[in-house]
Each structure stands twice: as structure tokens, then as C-alpha cells.
Design a protein around this nucleic acid. Structure first.
Length: 887
DNA sequence: GGGCTCCGCCTTTTT
DNA sequence: GGCGGAGCCC
């Protein structure tokens, strides 16, 4: 790399224009005019990133360093200095949200004329655009449909059945994921690794993939992966087409470059790389600018390759690398906490964020403990209300969770409190059943050959077209080589079908013919409404007396309303195939609830980060499947979470969480240990103190969280010490953590049902025993913080009474603590024994055992037929004794 | 052909 | 604990 152009060094200090101006001057182009308004307020690095328009540029932009600002200003700059027309700029983002935001921000900068930026969009939307122009080159027509996941699964299922494979043993969903992985890597059926091909469906993975692609062509359809795969194939096989795009795109910008997968990378490289032909013509390579942050790479599971960012300089020799490290968003404490955490990762380019926001008044990042997820939600709800009373806006607060199931608890709580909230990225509008059904009708009208859509609604609402009739239709269509709707039109003229289904099908055919005929004359919103009414679909939901029906009708109305924003029915369908989200109105003041993934790129004054527990965050599956890199990705996710906060970051963890409807005792996340103490406060619980599951802390070597090292002041608060003490006195060997299942007698899901009655008994008994928890002495020996628990019992607002079956174990009186620690609550101990110990185990503590997945280990605890085993390599796990054998 | 019940799997993240 | 799918019965 050219040293003088490295990072902070060069362009910044030069007279304005820098490399860009020089490059232009060299070409005889106009030199950029003196600093325009839009450049004001940029720091030197940002300005360099904006003004270095020529040649490849990599901007390593840390969290909150003004990345979007740089990108948008850069585009504005290119436009303002007339280096290119809007249509000559390709700007790619990852999400629709980012694309939208960029559009509006450029609009503000250049004065509202971004309508002319036709090539600003997501990888997928731009992929569609390209594919529509050259569809015939890959065997499609330009009006091809884009399959949603639903269609895709149904189609794969048909193929699996056609191969006479057991679709239970080889689930369509699994294959869809597999194929998605291949497409993310840019692999066509003949390119997939032999091992992959063999692993699925008795070695027929490749055959299936091929059959699937063939089927898509015959359906004139493309799936999401194809929106990248097809353009790549077109560029590769048709140099003339590629050359055309090379001429067109003078500037390429890519946002979130760290999240690009191999396919996107290939796509981009084809478009952006300096080609010999261009060099001969004396043209420069395309001016490509990629912006990203390796520390925020959180989509590895989806095929993203951080490697892309790491090898940028190799791919684009002579690249300028600019680091944005000055953070404008967060306080020094927040940055410090985030920096400490992320520094544990080994695979990183390394950036050091700094800020001018130093103020002794600033709060440290807080860590709070709760007893269970319900308490977590309640306490966070209270904190939010407190902040609100002090004048804070709900819009400035967000709760960022690891997994979407965590959202529910907050929603429930906020509904009770009457606290406004909005869920972002939750169950999406266009993925709802009624919306998909309606869209299937519209698709059939616009595209009579859309068999997947037709299948979806042919008997919805019920028309008496059952399996028999549909199978006949399928066979007929296949025999004649016709789409289903056309086949149906044929079939109703004959007598193959019985009278009733024939009449029903005939009506369907007539309807679609009529609707299609109206497509060009009728207003599309009216037509949409008419289709839903005439098909009986609206009526179906009106007749439905279930609780959701009114909501569904409301959604359908909303769908029709939203069509108004589009020119035509096909135009609308195109939009929704790609943009599966609906804009959220920020009008009302509301707390945002979303996953950490969807929070990337956002910022809030106050950020709550609940659920920092091993197994949830870092997520067990990432650890199991991703190993160290999986863990590092989780850590980056934590980093993303912390760096969303501007003033306040509040982390929570609890001792008991319900996962799959079963209560599990949890241990604090290792990430908590990695937060630098100087920037963290461990809080006294604001409500009743939520201790730990007996003995459930640490587990990852010496940890502040298991009483070995809490000597510093921030971790020396009374609450903290108490937590330590409680953890240490749990009476459990080693104080190591593990996941213990509560609820259904602590059994695995499969036989939970058979225990329903035992569970009920147990809880009835436990309610009785709960009174005993109030006895200070008894409770004192049983588990953490009984004072808090006693306090709660006497709290008239406590909802203890209403606990039904499968509630979490109560504090200090948990099933686990009494059984484990041999606490004083005999009643519960007995009940536990009854519900858990159906069969005595063959093993006892100290035995060496072997498990097929976890390897060898030592039995730590035996509870009936369930063992807690310290595996030599896999750590501590709970297993049923049937799954291990003596080692 | 429709509706009911039971079973199994699931819940990481998304264009 | 909740949902979808399959199978059974009417």
C-alpha cells in the first residue's frame, strides 16, 4: 500500500481536495470548489473519506464515528462537484432501512433531488433490477416472481417427495438452509463440495439443488439467493453486459462491508475491479469505496465473511485506508466498557475509539442482577418510568435482546404498565398468513403462471377442493406442461373431476380471468379489495370467530391502504417481495424493543441490555457450532449492543430464565467478566434483590462473578458482595454453573407431558411451602437473599399468589436449592425427589462416564435419572443417564 | 372432504 | 409453552 495515503496521514492535512482533486486535475477535470457547506463540521478523517473520491478506498469506521454521514456526504460531494450523475453511482446497503435513510439524508444534503439515484439500494433490490434487464440470459422472463421462504419450502418439499425421499427424515427447511448457504457462497449445483452434496438426502443433495433450480426456471421464479447468483452468472458469461455496467457505474459505494458474503463479494468485485480492458482505454478502475467495521461483523452465520474487509487491499491494490476512530455518540465510560470487551477478541484489525465526551457526571455502565426474567422486565420497566418522570423521552430508550423470545416478557410487562413500546423487526407484516394469502391472490392475477401462489389459495377459503382434486390438477398440469391455472381452465371443461370440485374450480378460473382482465383498467387498490371480497377471502375472516380474526381483517385493510403508494399491482408486488418490513411511525413516544442484530446502526440515549447469561448470550448454539469464532461473533454482538448507547447503558442478567417453556437456572455471561471495572457499576437492586440460582456463578475460571476476585471498588458494593457471598454459599461443589431445568419436574421436553399432573401437585404443595420461606433462619440457609424474598412475600402488590403451574421457582425457595443444597425445606425436597427421581440412576457422583457428543467426564451430581456431569472438554452439562455409559 | 386431536419440534440472528 | 403437520374419525 502506498504509505503516504495510509489512514489518518495524508489527505487530511493537505489543502482541500487532496487526492481527489489531484486525481481530477490529472485527468484535466475540474478541481473541486472550495469547501462547500456540506463539508463543514467533518473531522479530518471524515473529510478525507469524503474527498478521496478516486481510486479504491476502504473506510474502517468504528461505532458512532459518523459512518453514514461520511457515506451520504461522499455521494453529495460527488454529485455537487459533478463528478458523476446520480445514475452513475452505485450505492449498496444491507438493509432497506439503511437504504431509506441514506436516500433521505442525501436528499437533505443536495436538496431533495435523489429521485435520480436509481442505483441506491440493497444488494438484493439492485440484484433484481439487474436481473430484470437480462432475465433471458439465465432462462427467465423479465417478469419473474421472487419466491418467499414459504413458497421455497413448499417447492422443495414437493421435490423431496418426487425423489421418493422421506420428507420427515429430510426436512425441506433443512435443505432450504443448506441451499441458502451454498448460494451465499456463490456456489452453483456443479460447484458445491462433494461432502455437502452427499450429506443430504442419501447423497442426492446435488440432484435436488439442480432439480430445484430447474423448477424455478419453469416457474419463472427466482429465490433470494438467485438475486445475486444470476447477476454473477450473467456478468461472468456475458462480458459485454458487464462492460456496459462498468461504463455506467463510475462510483461504487458499499455500506457495512464487513457483512458481505462471498456471493456479494463476487458480485461486487465483478462490477468494481479494474479490468484490463478499462486499463487499455486509459480509464481508471472503478472508484470503489467500502465502509465497514470488522468489530461489528455479526452476520457470519449468514455467510458473511469478515475476510472480505481484511483482504480489501489485496483485491484493490493501491487502496487508501482511512480509519474513523473519533466517536461522537457515547460517553467515555460506554466506550471504555465496549473497548475492554472487544479487546478480548483476537481476530480484528484493531481500532481505538476515542471521544471528547468526558464528564465526571456521566454514569458508568451498570450491571444488575435479577431473580428471573419477569423481575428483569419489571425492574427495567420501573427504570424506564423513572427516567420518563425525569423528562426522558421513550423514543430515546431501547431494549436490545439477543433472541426474539425475550421480547415477550417486556411486552407483557409494558402492556400492564401502559407503557408505549414498539417492537422492531418482530413478526413482520408481510409475513403474516392473511397478508401472504392476499398477496398470493394478487400474484396469480398478475402472473397466471405463478403456481406456488395458486397452490396457496386454490382452496383458501375452503371451496371443497381437497387432496384428490388438487392431485388430479397437478397430474394434468404436468402431463400437459401447463401452469396450474391454465390446466384448471382446461380441466373444468372435461369430466375428470367430480361435479362439485369441478364447479368450484370453474369459479376460481372464471374469477382469475375476470380479475386479470381488469388489471389494466381498474385502479389497483380497488381491484385488490374486489379480489379479496369476491374470492370470499374477506368473508372467511369475517366469519372466523377467533380472537385474531379482527386483527387480520385490519391488516388486510392496511395492505390495501399501503398499495396506494405504488403505481400498479405488479409494482406493489415487486416492492413487497424485497422489502419485508413496514415503516414504523416514530410519531408516538415509545420504547423500542428489538434484537441486537436489528439494532446495528441505531443509537439511543439509554440502552437496556437484558439477558446476559451463558447459553443465551453468548448463545449456546453459536458456541456449539461456531467455536471460538462463534464466540467472537457473539462478543461483537455485545459490542454492538453497548455502543448503541449514548448516555446510559444498563446490562442485566438473571438467575432463572424460561427457555422452551421450561425454567432453567442460568449463570452470568462471561462477557460481564470482560467489562473493565473502571467503567462499570454493579448496582444494588432497585426492587427485591434477585440473587443467583444456588451456586450458579462463574464456571469460566477465576471470575469476579464467583467470588474469587471482587476486590475493586466498583465490584465491592454491598449488593455485589452479597451476590458473591450468596453464590459462594450455594452449597454446591465448585460453585460452577450449569443449566438446570425447572418446571416440569426438571425433565426434558419429550416426557414433560406425562408429568403434567405431577407438576400440578408439586406446585400446589409448593405454594403451601412458600410461606415457610419467610422464616429468616430457614431461608438463610437455603439460598441467596432471603430478606428480599421475605419482603416480597409481604408486599401487597406482589403477584406471588397468582403463580400457576410452571412458574419459576421462588427466590430462596427454589426446587433446586432445596434439593441441591439439602436445605431445610423438606416438603419441597420430597416433591422434587418424587417428580425427578422416577428411576434411580446407575451412576453416582464421582463416576467417570462417556457421552457420545460431549465425550468423557465426571459425574458431579445425580438427581434421579438426571446427571450433572463435568465433561473434560465440553464443560458442565445436564444429561439423562440413558445417554451416557460408564467410561 | 373437513375437522379434530395428537405429536414433535422449536427459538439466534435476516436480505 | 405454542405452532404446524400428520393422521384419524366423522
Amino acid at each position: 500500500m502506498d504509505e503516504t495515503r495510509d489512514q489518518n496521514a495524508a489527505p487530511a492535512g493537505r489543502p482541500q481536495g487532496g487526492i481527489a482533486a489531484r486525481a481530477l486535475a490529472a485527468r484535466g477535470g475540474p478541481v473541486a470548489p472550495p469547501a462547500a457547506d456540506y463539508l463543514a463540521g467533518l473531522n479530518p478523517e471524515q473529510r478525507a473519506a469524503v474527498e478521496t473520491t478516486e481510486g479504491p478506498v476502504l473506510v474502517l469506521a468504528g461505532a458512532g464515528t459518523g459512518k453514514t454521514r461520511v457515506l451520504t456526504t461522499r455521494i453529495a460531494h460527488i454529485l455537487a462537484t459533478r463528478r458523476a450523475f446520480p445514475s452513475q453511482i452505485l450505492a449498496v446497503t444491507f438493509t432497506n432501512k439503511a437504504a431509506r435513510e441514506m436516500k433521505t439524508r442525501i436528499g437533505h444534503l443536495v436538496g431533495g433531488e435523489v429521485e435520480g439515484m436509481p442505483w441506491l439500494g440493497t444488494f438484493h433490490s439492485i440484484g433484481v433490477k439487474i436481473l430484470r434487464r437480462h432475465a433471458e440470459l439465465v432462462g427467465l422472463k423479465s417478469n419473474f416472481t421472487i419466491l418467499d421462504t414459504d413458497d421455497q419450502i413448499r417447492l422443495i418439499k414437493q421435490l423431496i417427495q418426487a425423489e421418493n425421499l422421506d420428507d420427515k427424515r429430510w426436512p425441506a427447511r433443512t435443505f432450504a438452509n443448506l441451499m441458502d448457504g451454498w448460494k451465499n457462497k456463490g456456489l452453483t449445483p456443479d460447484k458445491i463440495p462433494e461432502g455437502d452434496a452427499r450429506a443430504f438426502a442419501e447423497g442426492r443433495g446435488r440432484t435436488l439443488y439442480r432439480a430445484y433450480q430447474d423448477r424455478l426456471v419453469s416457474l419463472n421464479a427466482a429465490d433470494f439467493g438467485d438475486l445475486l447468483m444470476h447477476p454473477i452468472a450473467i456478468f461472468r458469461d456475458h462480458p459485454d453486459v458487464l462492460a456496459d455496467y462498468h461504463r455506467r457505474f463510475r462510483y461504487i459505494l458499499v455500506d457495512e462491508y464487513q457483512d458481505t458474503n462471498v456471493a456479494q463479494y463476487l458480485w461486487l468485485r465483478l462490477l468494481a475491479q479494474h479490468s484490463p480492458e478499462r486499463a487499455q482505454n486509459g480509464q481508471e478502475g472503478v472508484n470503489v469505496c467500502c465502509v465497514g467495521d470488522d468489530d461489528q461483523s455479526i452476520y457470519g452465520w449468514r455467510g458473511a465473511e469478515v475476510d472480505n474487509i481484511l483482504r480489501f487491499e489485496r483485491d484493490f491494490p493501491g487502496a487508501t485506508v482511512i480509519r474513523l476512530e473519533r466517536n461522537y455518540r457515547s460517553t467515555a465510560h460506554i466506550l471504555g466498557a465496549a473497548a475492554g470487551l472487544i479487546s478480548v477478541n483476537q481476530d480484528r484489525l484493531g481500532k481505538t475509539l476515542y471521544t471528547d465526551l468526558h464528564d465526571p457526571e456521566h454514569e458508568k455502565v451498570t450491571v444488575s442482577a435479577g431473580w428471573d426474567s419477569e423481575e428483569e422486565a419489571r425492574a427495567i420497566g420501573e427504570e424506564i418510568e423513572q427516567l420518563q418522570r425525569k423528562g426522558a423521552k421513550l423514543n430515546d430508550m431501547a431494549i436490545l435482546v439477543r433472541a426474539s423470545f425475550q421480547m415477550r416478557e417486556f411486552e407483557d410487562r409494558f402492556v400492564t404498565l401502559g407503557l408505549n413500546y414498539r417492537v422492531i423487526g418482530g413478526p413482520r407484516f408481510y409475513e403474516r398468513q392473511e397478508i401472504r394469502d392476499a398477496l398470493a391472490y394478487f400474484r396469480c392475477v398478475c402472473q397466471p403462471a405463478d403456481d406456488l401462489a395458486f397452490e396457496r389459495i386454490v382452496n383458501t377459503p375452503k371451496r371443497g377442493l381437497g387432496d384428490a382434486a388438487i392431485r388430479l390438477l397437478h397430474d394434468y398440469a404436468r402431463a400437459k406442461g401447463l401452469p396450474l391455472l391454465a390446466a384448471a381452465a382446461d380441466l373444468v371443461g372435461g369430466d375428470e373431476l367430480k361435479a362439485r370440485p369441478r364447479a368450484a374450480l370453474a369459479e376460481v378460473v372464471r374469477n382469475f380471468e375476470r380479475w386479470s382482465g381488469l388489471l389494466s383498467t381498474m385502479r389497483h387498490t380497488d381491484l385488490g379489495e374486489m379480489i379479496l371480497d369476491e374470492s370470499g377471502y374477506t368473508e372467511m375472516w369475517q366469519a372466523d370467530r377467533s380472537a385474531e380474526a379482527p386483527g387480520r381483517l385490519e391488516n388486510l385493510k392496511e395492505l390495501i391502504r399501503s398499495m396506494d403508494d405504488y403505481e400498479s399491482l405488479p409494482g406493489f408486488l415487486e416492492h413487497i417481495a424485497l422489502v419485508m418490513d413496514t415503516e414504523q411511525n416514530a410519531e408516538t413516544d415509545a420504547v423500542s424493543i428489538m434484537t441486537l442484530h436489528s439494532a446495528k446502526g441505531l443509537e439511543f440515549e439509554t440502552v437496556f441490555l437484558p439477558g446476559w447469561e451463558e447459553g443465551l448470550f453468548p448463545h449456546q448454539r453459536s458456541l456449539d457450532e461456531g467455536g471460538r469464532s462463534g464466540l467472537e461473533e457473539e462478543r461483537r454482538l455485545a459490542y454492538v449492543g453497548i455502543t448503541r448507547g449514548k448516555r446510559r447503558v444498563k446490562i442485566w442478567f438473571v438467575s432463572n430464565r424460561r427457555i422452551h417453556g421450561m425454567w432453567q437456572s442460568t449463570i452470568p455471561s462471561r462477557f460481564l467478566d470482560e467489562l473493565p471495572e473502571d467503567h462499570v457499576d454493579v448496582l444494588e437492586p432497585s426492587t427485591s434483590y434477585g440473587g443467583y440460582g444456588a451456586g450458579g456463578m462463574g464456571g469460566y475460571g477465576a471470575s469476579r462473578w464467583d467470588g474469587n476476585a471482587f476486590s475493586t471498588s466498583s465490584y465491592g458494593t454491598p449488593g455485589w458482595r452479597r451476590a458473591q457471598a450468596a453464590g459462594g454459599s450455594g452449597g454446591y461443589a465448585g460453585g460452577r454453573g450449569r443449566a438446570i431445568e425447572y418446571g416440569e419436574g426438571g425433565v426434558s421436553g419429550s416426557d414433560a407431558r406425562s408429568r403434567a399432573s405431577a407438576t400440578a401437585d408439586k406446585y400446589i404443595a409448593r405454594d403451601g411451602a412458600a410461606g415457610g420461606s419467610g422464616r429468616p433462619d430457614a431461608a438463610a440457609r437455603a439460598g441467596p437473599d432471603r430478606a428480599g424474598f421475605a419482603g416480597r412475600l409481604s408486599d401487597p402488590f406482589s403477584d406471588n399468589r397468582s403463580r400457576g403451574a410452571n412458574q419459576p421457582p421462588r427466590k430462596g425457595g427454589g426446587l433446586y436449592s432445596s434439593a441441591r443444597a439439602g436445605g431445610p425445606r423438606e416438603i419441597e425436597g420430597t416433591l422434587v425427589a418424587k417428580s425427578v427421581a422416577d428411576e434411580p440412576s446407575r451412576f453416582s457422583a464421582g463416576d467417570r462416564v462417556f457421552h457420545i457428543k460431549f465425550g468423557t467426564g465426571t459425574v458431579a451430581v445425580v438427581e434421579g435419572n438426571k446427571l450433572t456431569v463435568d465433561f473434560d472438554r465440553a464443560g458442565q452439562k445436564r444429561v439423562l443417564d440413558g445417554f451416557v455409559e460408564p467410561a
